[in-house]
Write a protein that binds this DNA or RNA. Structure first.
Lengths: 125, 125
DNA sequence: CTATTATATTCAATTTTTTGCATATTGTCA
DNA sequence: TGACAATATGCAAAAAATTGAATATAATAG
């Protein structure tokens, strides 16, 4: 069981990229749809799709299609562990501190639901 | 305490390289001299020195000079932990399985000592 | 079928990294 | 001092990664 340095280096190489790290951090709790990630990175859609493609082809993430939308999630627990090591454990944030706040304008079904949940209390009082 | 993805990516980038991983793996138990690493990688001396220079300038490894020889070691425990995560924990090997076997021809003082230690029992019986 | 929306692919230009090689530096010994 | 041995540095060529932008595909609604 000796180490394959080439293979290991290639895997890490894909993690050593700021936007890809941002993507991986975003999906490591639960899967997120591409439109989320586009809003989060604030980059052109083809750019985001390219990064997703690299990660997918390397077996780091997996996609799940739902109509027009595509959701991405980490491929396995090993990747999740690597991310925990590199980015720190996932912290459960307060709603008002949530990174999702800036994604509320995303038009995907999931976001619209979340937006309602967050907006309703404001009109309730 | 939000994550700086650029900085994190830059740190990992230097680890995402097969020869540098090999170097780091070699020095993570204890410091090793450059001539060791040249023998281990089987690469030209300037090549190895360049990789060491990159790692040194990034604060990943530290050097310790002893006459003509230079020994390198990991800079801190955080790096060691990253390596444990990426390469697995250090396994204490049997002498006959040791990676050091192939380094015995290295001319540095440390190696000559190790060579004696290994050779003597063969003549003792 | 056509239009639209979400996402993917392709490809070339740019930028960065890697590598090879010549040369420089530094310490030691005679 | 001069010669040698171990290591470092500088620089250019080659290779690889990144990015931007045009275009393609696929699902859905009408």
């Amino acid at each position: 069981m000796s180490i394959n340095y080439e293979e290991t280096a290639n895997k890490i190489k894909l993690l050593a990229h700021p936007e890809r790290l941002r993507i991986l951090d975003a999906i490591r709790r639960e899967s997120e749809c591409v439109c989320h990630l586009i809003a989060l990175l604030n980059k052109p859609q083809p750019y985001v799709s390219q990064q997703l493609s690299l990660l997918r082809k390397a077996g780091i993430i997996e996609d799940e299609k739902d109509g027009l939308n595509v959701y991405y999630r980490l491929a396995d627990r090993e990747i999740a562990n690597w991310l925990d090591d590199i980015l720190g454990e996932v912290v459960d944030e307060q709603p008002e501190m949530s990174q999702h706040k800036k994604l509320v304008t995303c038009p995907c079904p999931k976001c619209e639901t979340e937006a309602e949940v967050m907006v309703e209390p404001m009109f309730a009082q």
